[in-house]
Write a protein that binds this DNA or RNA. Structure first.
Lengths: 219, 219
DNA sequence: AGCATAACGCACCGTATAGTTACTTACACA
DNA sequence: TGTGTAAGTAACTATACGGTGCGTTATGCT
C-alpha cells in the first residue's frame, strides 16, 4: 500500500457525496476566516482545510474568493433580517417594541460577532460585492418600512415624537451597538476597561436603550 | 553615458538628503495606502513608490510593515486629540461645548477619512500595534478627564443630567459619527441614498447633535 | 580637504497565494 | 446493471509579496 487513497483503505470514514453539506461547511469556514482576517487577509487554503473540503470545490461552487465572500455576505444579511422579523414588533406596544429592537441588535452582534467584521470588510472595498444585489435591496426596503410603521404607530399613540426619520433612527441604533463591538480592542486601550466584561456589557446596553428612548419618546 | 546616475546627469533634479522629509512622505503615502486597502491589503511597494522613496528606506526608518503602521497610527491618534484640545471646551457654556464636541468629531472624520479606516484595521488585528503604547494611554486619560469635567460643570450649572459616564458618552458620540462614515457604502445600498450628498450630511449631523443633547441635557 | 556617518538605491530571495489542470469516484436513473 | 454527470482530489503554476544584502552618494564636522 504505497499511497493511501483517502477513503478507500481507512476504517470508519464513510465519506458521502453531499453538495449542500459541503457548500455549507465551506461557508461556515469562510465566515470564520473572513471575520478573523478580513477579505485580503483570509486564506482560501485555510478555508478549504477548515471546511474539510478541497480547494477545488470552493472554486467549483463559488467561482472565486470574492464570489465566496459575496454569497456569504448576502446570507448573513438575510439571516439578521429574518431573525429580526421574528420579534413581531408590530404586536408590541411602541415603547416596548423600540426597546426590543435595540436589545435585539445588541444581542445579535454578541451572538454573531462575525457579522460586524464581514460588514467592515465589505465597506473597505466600497461594497462591490453587494452593490447590485436585488435581494439585499428588497429585504432592506421591507425592514425600513417596518421601522417606519412602528414610528408612525408610536406617534399616533402619542408616545413617540413626530418627524423622526426611520433611516436616521436605524443608523443610530446600529451605530451605538455596532461601534462598541467593532472598536472594542482600541476601546479597551483608550478607556482602560474590558469592553467584554459582563458588567461592562450590562452597563452599555442600558445606556444604549436610554439613548434611543430619550431620542424617540416624548418627555 | 551608459548608466544614468539619478541626480548627476539630469537637469534640474537636485535631490537633497532630508531624513525627516522622507519619513513624512512615507507616512503620508502609508496613510493613503493603508486606508484604501487595509493592513493586509496595503502593499509596501506601492507606499514606497507613492512616497518617491526607496523601499529600503521604508524598512530603514520603520523596521517593518507593522512598524510603519504602528508609527502612523500613533501619530493619527495624537493628531485628533491635539485638534480637539484646540476647541477650548472648558471656556464654552456646557451645552455649546457639547455641541461643539459632536460637530468637531463629525468634521474631523470628514476632513480625515483615513482615520476611521486605520482604526478599523487596528481593531481587526485586536489592537496589537497600540496595545502597549504609553503615549496613547496618557493622551486618552487626559481626553476623558476633559469630558468628565465638562459633564460635571454642566451638572453644577443645572444644564446636564446627573450620573452620565464620560466614557459611555464618548463612545456614543464617536459611534453615531464614525458608523455613518465607515458604513457609508453598505449604507448607501441598504438605505438607497447617497450618504455623502451635502443634504444627507447636513441632515445627519443635525440628527446626531439632537441625539446627544437629548441624552445629556435636562428637559 | 578629508572623513565618518547617515541617506539612499538596485537587484535579488524565499515563500505564500489565488487559481488551475487533469484526474478519480460516487450516485441517480435508465 | 450500466452509464452520464456531478462530487471530490492531489499536484502544480505563475506571480506577487515582504523583506534584505550590499554597494553608492551626500552632508556635517574637524
Amino acid at each position: 500500500m504505497p499511497l493511501e487513497k483517502s477513503r478507500a483503505s481507512s476504517s470508519t470514514k464513510k465519506r458521502v457525496r453531499d453538495a449542500e453539506a459541503t457548500k455549507l461547511r465551506i461557508l461556515e469556514a469562510a465566515k470564520k476566516e473572513f471575520a478573523r482576517n478580513g477579505l485580503e487577509g483570509a486564506r482560501v487554503d485555510t478555508i478549504a482545510l477548515d471546511a474539510k473540503a478541497n480547494k477545488r470545490m470552493l472554486y467549483h461552487y463559488f467561482k472565486s474568493k470574492d464570489g465566496l465572500f459575496r454569497t456569504l455576505l448576502e446570507r448573513e444579511y438575510l439571516n439578521i433580517r429574518e431573525e429580526e422579523t421574528k420579534l413581531n414588533l408590530e404586536n408590541l406596544p411602541p415603547r416596548t417594541a423600540l426597546e426590543t429592537l435595540v436589545r435585539f441588535t445588541w444581542e445579535y452582534y454578541i451572538a454573531n460577532p462575525e457579522f460586524i467584521t464581514l460588514v467592515n470588510s465589505e465597506n473597505l472595498c466600497q461594497a462591490v460585492h453587494i452593490r447590485n444585489s436585488p435581494t439585499l435591496k428588497t429585504i432592506s426596503q421591507k425592514f425600513i418600512r417596518r421601522i417606519q410603521s412602528l414610528l408612525d404607530r408610536g406617534v399616533r399613540e402619542n408616545i413617540f415624537r413626530e418627524g423622526i426619520d426611520a433611516a436616521q433612527l436605524n443608523i443610530t441604533i446600529a451605530s451605538i451597538n455596532y461601534y462598541y463591538f467593532t472598536n472594542r480592542f482600541t476601546g479597551s486601550v483608550i478607556f482602560e476597561r474590558d469592553f467584554t466584561a459582563p458588567e461592562a456589557l450590562k452597563e452599555r446596553i442600558a445606556f444604549n436603550i436610554e439613548t434611543i428612548c430619550r431620542l424617540v419618546c416624548k418627555n
